[in-house]
Nucleic acid binder design. Sequence first.
DNA 1: CTTAACTCGTACATGTGTGTTCGAGTTAAG
DNA 2: CTTAACTCGAACACACATGTACGAGTTAAG
Lengths: 205, 205
Amino acid sequence: MGPSTRREAAEGRAGGPRRRADAERNIAAIVTAATDLLARDPDASMTDIARAAGVGRVTLYAHFPSREDLIRTVLAAAISHSMGAVEVAAPDEGPPAEAFARLIRTCWPILDRFGGLHEAARRALPAEEVRRHHDLPMGRVERLIVRGQEAGSFRADLPAEWVVTTVYALLHAAGDEVQAGRRTAEEAGDLLERTLSALLRTPGA
Amino acid sequence: MGPSTRREAAEGRAGGPRRRADAERNIAAIVTAATDLLARDPDASMTDIARAAGVGRVTLYAHFPSREDLIRTVLAAAISHSMGAVEVAAPDEGPPAEAFARLIRTCWPILDRFGGLHEAARRALPAEEVRRHHDLPMGRVERLIVRGQEAGSFRADLPAEWVVTTVYALLHAAGDEVQAGRRTAEEAGDLLERTLSALLRTPGA
DNA sequence: CTTAACTCGTACATGTGTGTTCGAGTTAAG
DNA sequence: CTTAACTCGAACACACATGTACGAGTTAAG
């Protein structure tokens, strides 16, 4: 048969015949390479991704039947990664202001990367599916904002949804600065923290 | 000879033989259609643009030898349009805070559209050229920020360059909200104004 | 060692975008 | 009216991305 049997979609395989170790390694390399490339450039081609993963293009297709499949997998991995980080930094209790500062300081690069992948997903996946995945980490941050508004620590004269939007927009702007080499990650993180705290503070305080 | 003599590049023709009226009209239609389409989607194809302008694809190429040429022309037009609006709303004297508020209130859609075109230009034009054009309206806003910082009306603990970046990022976020139909232009402008004023106010005031 | 899984270069089919050519028809300008 | 400018559909050449098929070589696993 072909270059590989391609039994299941590299991800949710049941219990069947075990996968060989080198295949496992290659799949991991592909996912990390694709995450990096797609976050930087949502139009990165399958050829680029294969090369970056140190793998032949055919091998890539052996594990991921289509670009859509690959992006789906990458997005799912990035989301579960993001969610883990967010839950640690900003759990559902404790002072919202501190939680938010911690969240920005420790995981803004992760969230920014998620934003880049989101753009890639928007182009390759059906809108409904993207929206569904999008809601998870976005909703988490929004809950934190709402909690802070209700507790009086964040300004409440702006819709929480809009605040989340601005947070992501600035996250992305900071990421671009770093990627363009205009600032180090530390500088960008610092600017981000000071900018966002000004954004959240209530206007009269 | 071909469908048209294509003597010069539709733009900087000297004095030679006059251009016919219908050609002039079509060129104008192409530029406005391209401006609209490219601002919304930087990947809009030449076919799309021709159709939106109500013109055959061949006619488009008769006036603009390449996609690069078209984008160059569109970008130049958008910049001169933006510059005009900015100079009226935010001249180089007068209270910076008021000038800034006026600037946002009256021409944020124009500036946002310019941002979209900038993205299209970034993909089609050499980086050096984009940067050169980019500096004009960007520098204008930056001068205003610096002036406000020196006058004490804006917070000075953030680099003016970063402030400009955040302004454009939020401008774009607001534009997306409108385009996605989540808010009206009025709502978005209002949110923008309140968000940005919080960003510029000095932290202790 | 033997076998099945896996890798990978080459090549092909298909689709899409760019830019050009041809030729016939239309329209503004003198 | 006459002419040169202009428009435009159809077709072509080219480049590039996706996805598939083949066949030979390599490697993990028993």
